[in-house]
Design a protein around this nucleic acid. Structure first.
Lengths: 208, 208
DNA sequence: AACCTCCTAGAACGAACGCTCTATCTAGAG
DNA sequence: CTCTAGATAGAGCGTTCGTTCTAGGAGGTT
């Protein structure tokens, strides 16, 4: 029954298992519409699955779906972030490359694909601790990646941790502002200023 | 019928008109639960109004309610921002005071009251242009306030505009990260680094 | 008195929601 | 072949959604 054909219109890949297709559809839909704006029947339709299949793989219902979607978004952005950070030896240049990549992704999606976990996490702030914790763990993973890069570049340990948080914060906020404003300007400014900040702490580390 | 009594349990103020009570309830609820997570009947109940009253003042329905709520959040945060910026002559110290204020607000609300426009705007990204534009205007208003402060402190015009965007971006992102992580650490780091960045551009302006 | 405008009140509608349920299909083991 | 567990299929449950609708109350003007 399952064909090896890729549906170019919806981006759905029938070679993936049902569970994976459902997770990806949930992630994509909640990224755009948030938790409450996304229906399970809509997820099933987008994934090319039926309601029975969805509840077979996710007996915990919508909440379990959201947690899986957030974790998927976590891995997805972590892979992108790792790739970009590895491609540039200089951390300042690497962070600027990140802002360019985020800007490109936003523009290509006509300003609808923002951070894959923010929309889901924000709408469920105090209501579903599981979802919130999955989102918090995503931020921590991304922070760890940036932290490694900063430390490898010689930035002092006591500076690097906070600086890595500011990098994540600013990327997050700039993407959000850029999306709402439909302009890459906030992301461009963020890249320039983060690069400036990073080189500042690099100099501080080499001249004690 | 209308008493002059303030309901200390719900925070509802009966001395306000119905329309204003509805707007405030919408703003508060959508700040926590987003657009789709907030029902009109819930708004009516929280505001101490009936469904008929809500639709009398907002015949445009939920969409019009959301726009009014975002504009209310815009004014609310603009007032706070203006007050803090005016209380500190040094822009770096003023921005740090902002991060402290945001951290305090988050902690007091048990991490549920984040930015009053983000949750509403994110969930309606591509669907309701009116809401998105109201949110974009809010960011512009806040940006203008920071921009004035930076210029008044002598920062070069060509630097100040981008720098003001990064301040807004980073405040936004840090509040978001702090809320999800239930920790003030991201906000504290943001305050320190923004202050550092601002003084850097101040020095650049005085030593050509 | 009558009248008019503003506002309040909530029943009722069709649609969509999350979820449960039973039934059927498929594939591999024996 | 039969047996079984995993996966698929979708009708239907009760509830809630946004919205519409009609009816009534409050207060001022004529």
């Amino acid at each position: 029954m399952r064909t090896k054909h890729r549906d170019t219109a919806t981006g759905r890949d029938d070679t993936l298992g049902t569970r994976e297709r459902v997770v990806r559809a949930t992630s994509a839909l909640m990224q755009r519409q948030g938790f409450d704006g996304t229906g399970i029947k809509q997820i099933a339709q987008e994934a090319g699955a039926t309601l029975g299949s969805v509840y077979h793989f996710f007996p915990g219902g919508k909440q379990q779906l959201a947690v899986a979607a957030v974790r998927h978004g976590d891995r997805e952005f972590a892979d992108l972030l790792r790739e970009i950070l590895d491609s540039e030896p200089d951390p300042a240049a690497a962070v600027m490359a990140c802002t360019r990549s985020l800007a490109e992704g936003l523009r290509e999606s006509d300003w609808v694909d923002g951070c894959p976990v923010t929309a889901t996490a924000l709408g469920t702030a105090g209501r579903f601790p599981d979802i919130q914790q999955a989102a918090a763990e995503a931020f921590e993973h991304w922070h760890a990646l940036v932290l490694d890069k900063l430390r490898a570049a010689g930035i002092r340990d006591e500076d690097a941790d906070d600086l890595a948080w500011t990098v994540i914060n600013t990327l997050e906020g700039a993407e959000l502002t850029a999306q709402v404003s439909r302009s890459v300007k906030p992301l461009e400014a963020a890249g320039r200023h983060l690069a400036r900040l990073i080189t500042l702490y690099q100099q501080a580390a080499t001249t004690p």
